[in-house]
Simulated assay, not measured.
Amino acid sequence: MARVDVTTQPITRAGVAPPLTAPTIDGDIVDVGAVAVWVDNAGVAAVTVTVQTPVTQDGLALADLAVTVPAGAHRLIGPLPSRTFAQPADAAEGAGRALVDYSAVTDVTRAVIRI
């Protein structure tokens, strides 16, 4: 499988009930900016969600954002500013967007929401 291009759901004044869908083991490609990733872990073990950070400042690589989602819990991860999370324009995948990885995908669902 390949990374999945996840559609961003906008929040409206009427509210949003974003459809939660399962990620693939290869991860996601998501929009950057005022965006958050909603992750629901219905499994029995914690899952780590990692947003790759392709940025280097003064020769030092900025660490990836890694968030643990406990078993039976959910997390809203973001925002994802482009200056920190956007892949370079010449990236092999996800140019100008963020790459999100999951330590496990069994019993995990997610949605991307514009905040």
Rank of each mutant, 00 (worst) to 15 (best):
M1Y: 09
R3D: 10
R3T: 08
V4M: 15
V4D: 14
D5H: 12
V6C: 06
T7C: 04
T12K: 10
R13L: 15
R13S: 11
A14M: 13
V16M: 15
A17L: 14
P19I: 14
P19F: 09
L20H: 09
L20Y: 07
T21C: 06
T21P: 06
T21Y: 06
A22S: 15
P23R: 00
P23L: 02
I25Y: 11
I25N: 10
I25D: 12
D26C: 05
G27Q: 03
D28V: 04
A34Y: 13
A36P: 04
W38D: 11
W38N: 07
D40H: 11
N41E: 09
N41R: 03
A42I: 00
A45V: 11
A46P: 08
T50N: 05
V51F: 08
Q52M: 11
P54H: 01
V55F: 10
T56N: 07
T56M: 12
Q57T: 09
Q57D: 11
D58V: 06
L60A: 12
A61H: 07
L62H: 12
D64M: 08
D64L: 06
L65N: 10
L65E: 09
V67H: 07
V67N: 07
T68V: 15
V69W: 00
V69T: 00
G72I: 04
A73F: 13
A73T: 14
I77K: 02
G78T: 07
L80Y: 01
P81T: 03
R83Q: 11
T84R: 15
F85H: 03
F85S: 02
P88M: 05
P88I: 11
A89D: 15
A89P: 04
A89L: 09
A91G: 03
E93K: 03
G96Y: 02
G96T: 07
R97A: 05
D101H: 10
Y102R: 01
S103Q: 02
S103E: 01
T106I: 10
D107G: 00
D107H: 01
A111N: 06
A111R: 05
V112F: 00
R114L: 08
I115V: 11
